[in-house]
Write a protein that binds this DNA or RNA. Structure first.
Lengths: 194, 194
DNA sequence: TTTAAAGTTGAATGATCATTCAATATTATG
DNA sequence: CATAATATTGAATGATCATTCAACTTTAAA
């Protein structure tokens, strides 16, 4: 069905789309621009992605897959150590690894599409349910938390993390940024207290 | 400088822009479409808003002004009663008044612009600083909280509220939605405990 | 009432858009 | 090697875009 070439091309196109979206926003990244950026005619892009909507929904899958990756290093660690201090991965949640993993502008640009596209909304919902499940699994490894409702806890932790990401993305002042991060980290540590 | 007519026209145009953006998204709401919607030539819109960017930045001001309004009824109450149970306005924060006040799709669509526009970012930041200040003032009215750092508390409350709004906007199932709301409300009540 | 300013119209601009298509080149298959 | 499938090209489509402009109408000021 899908050849090596077609798989590579699709990947190349989506990555080009993503790169240009970082600079111009998704809404200003046309098929023609992607083509010029990659040195291919727009018709080739449409050969692999028949409509712009399909192209966008592939970009979203690409982004959501990336986001899930924040957990893979932590989960690997857990396999080896059989124990990880929750504080360690809370730190990781607040670290700038996420910003490195995926551009905030592109991410929120995609997110804003959920309100007019049911499929995109479902994809985002699934990602977030997965993120919470993963966090729950990690919390379950910690004996100190075995009295706690870890499902509830992971909801509570994530709502702080996500609120923090939203709010922090407006803060320019470096010092203020660090202050706020500390506040929100403490807020999560408080939740983790036995 | 600005006549009655020009003030009314500008308002009419921005509101038309907002209405169409609810349905199509900002990125798909052109000046021509706004004109058709309001029964006026696009050139008239450009007479009042010389560029599309100016039009967008006016839409954003319009939206942010609206958001601040969630507090005015609460603050009015406080003036009369000289006391309001914080639980009451936490409820209000989580109520659907906000969704009524401003469409989530338009809101997040505007928000995603902060990443490529410094002015818009500043406007959003100012709104959120104001929201937190307002909440602090309300918390300060409550004697039960006079041992607490109300500035810190308002940060912590809002980060939950904003994370919740983000997350809840993906949830379709009504029952699940109510469950989550209750979780996040409890999380805030916990913060308010003396 | 004259005149200036502000408001409004509609047609025209060139740029860019997503998408289509037929033609050509490359690769895989039998 | 032949042939079918896949990959790629480049030109052309009509729609829509933000913006410009000159002409016209209404309102305000003097």
């Amino acid at each position: 069905m899908s050849t090596r070439v077609s798989i590579d091309r699709k990947k190349e196109i989506i990555e080009g789309f993503y790169e240009l979206s970082k600079v111009n926003g998704i809404e200003n990244t046309s098929i023609a621009k992607i083509g010029k950026h990659l040195g291919m005619p727009p018709s080739l892009i449409m050969h692999y992605f028949p409509t712009r909507d399909i192209l966008i929904s592939n970009l979203i899958s690409f982004i959501l897959k990336r986001m899930l990756r924040i957990y893979t290093p932590i989960i690997k660690e857990l396999r080896v150590q059989n124990y990880t201090d929750p504080v360690t991965f809370v730190d990781r949640l607040f670290s700038r690894d996420w910003n490195l993993l995926i551009d905030d502008g592109v991410f929120y640009g995609c997110f804003s599409l959920i309100f007019r596209n049911e499929t995109i909304k479902r994809e985002f919902r699934n990602l977030h349910l997965k993120l919470r499940e993963n966090l729950k699994e990690i919390l379950d490894q910690d004996e100190k938390l075995n009295q706690k409702d870890t499902a509830l806890l992971s909801e509570q932790i994530f709502v702080v993390v996500e609120g923090a990401y939203y709010y922090l993305s407006m803060i320019e002042d470096e010092e203020m940024y660090e202050d706020k991060v500390q506040i929100f980290k403490n807020q999560v540590y408080q939740l983790l207290k036995p």
